[in-house]
Amino acid sequence: MNQDDVHEMREMMIAKQVARIIPELKLVDPADFIVFIHDEHFANISDIIDAATELHFYPHTVRFANGGNYQLDWNTPPTITLDMEFSNDGVTAYFHIIMSPEGFGIELDNVVFENPQDDEADTRQLIDALNNARLRKSANK
């Protein structure tokens, strides 16, 4: 499997887990995110992320990484991008949540492993770290 396939697979795994918090994030008016990003009120965004994740993940495993962006013009609805970090069991992933009226997406920047091995073992470690970060585990991982 080439590096692009590995990257895409890891991105999809993170997106599947993060999808749980998107409904809560979409309750926030996009204008609020825009103001918080523009004025660099990152603590406000961090509080929103913490509230959205608290029912799904253990504390501080999925958190806001103090950055974001927005696209806003007269002809299209806004798109909000939030810098995020996942950290658990020796795995740290840096990614962006991209939200628009059409839905959401995840853009993975990098995954860092405390004890890296090969792609297959590292991907397995990421899966385990994601599952171990969840408060409610399902029978099928």
Results as ranks from 00 to 15, higher is better:
residue 24 E to G: 03
residue 27 L to M: 12
residue 28 V to P: 01
residue 28 V to R: 08
residue 28 V to C: 05
residue 29 D to V: 04
residue 30 P to C: 06
residue 31 A to K: 13
residue 32 D to L: 09
residue 32 D to Q: 11
residue 33 F to N: 04
residue 33 F to P: 01
residue 33 F to R: 07
residue 37 I to R: 09
residue 39 D to R: 10
residue 41 H to K: 14
residue 41 H to S: 11
residue 43 A to Y: 08
residue 53 T to L: 05
residue 53 T to D: 08
residue 54 E to G: 00
residue 56 H to E: 12
residue 57 F to W: 12
residue 57 F to G: 09
residue 57 F to E: 10
residue 59 P to D: 14
residue 60 H to F: 14
residue 62 V to F: 15
residue 64 F to M: 06
residue 64 F to Q: 05
residue 64 F to L: 07
residue 69 N to Q: 08
residue 69 N to A: 12
residue 69 N to C: 00
residue 73 D to G: 04
residue 73 D to R: 07
residue 74 W to A: 14
residue 76 T to N: 15
residue 76 T to E: 15
residue 77 P to D: 14
residue 77 P to N: 11
residue 78 P to R: 09
residue 85 E to A: 13
residue 85 E to T: 15
residue 86 F to C: 09
residue 86 F to S: 13
residue 87 S to Y: 07
residue 87 S to L: 07
residue 88 N to L: 02
residue 90 G to A: 03
residue 90 G to I: 03
residue 90 G to C: 02
residue 92 T to Y: 04
residue 92 T to A: 11
residue 94 Y to G: 02
residue 97 I to V: 15
residue 98 I to C: 08
residue 98 I to E: 15
residue 100 S to H: 05
residue 103 G to A: 05
residue 103 G to N: 05
residue 104 F to M: 07
residue 105 G to Y: 06
residue 105 G to I: 02
residue 107 E to W: 03
residue 107 E to P: 00
residue 108 L to K: 04
residue 109 D to V: 08
residue 110 N to T: 09
residue 111 V to L: 03
residue 111 V to D: 03
residue 112 V to I: 15
residue 112 V to A: 10
residue 112 V to Y: 08
residue 113 F to N: 06
residue 115 N to G: 01
residue 116 P to F: 01
residue 117 Q to L: 10
residue 123 T to C: 02
residue 125 Q to A: 15
